[in-house]
């Protein structure tokens, strides 16, 4: 499984988008999540189970006030 175009070592069977976000401490409020190019909305993070060859992007929007 790819996370932001890098092989994700933490992949395991049944891992969800929410797991990836929690395990990586992606606490930034404005994330854009896409799996294989399709947008995943926040309310679906916990139910979206990832597969072996999924291409997951967790894009953090710019900060810097």
């Amino acid at each position: 499984m790819q996370l932001n175009h890098r092989e994700y070592a933490g992949f395991r069977e049944g891992i969800t988008v929410q797991d990836v976000i929690d395990e990586n401490k992606f606490t930034w409020p404005k994330l854009v999540v896409r799996c294989n190019g399709k947008v995943i909305w926040p309310q679906d993070y916990a139910q979206t189970v990832l597969q072996e060859n999924d291409d997951l992007e967790v894009i953090h929007l710019l900060g810097g006030g």
């Binding site: 932001n4 175009h5 890098r6 992606f26 930034w28 992007e57 967790v58 894009i59 953090h60 929007l61 710019l62 900060g63 810097g64």
Partner: peptide, 18 residues
Amino acid sequence: QHDEAWLIFMDQVNNQIP
């Protein structure tokens, strides 16, 4: 001063500018 560019997430996390 970071008012010209704030690229930390694009680079360090999103890996959008490798």
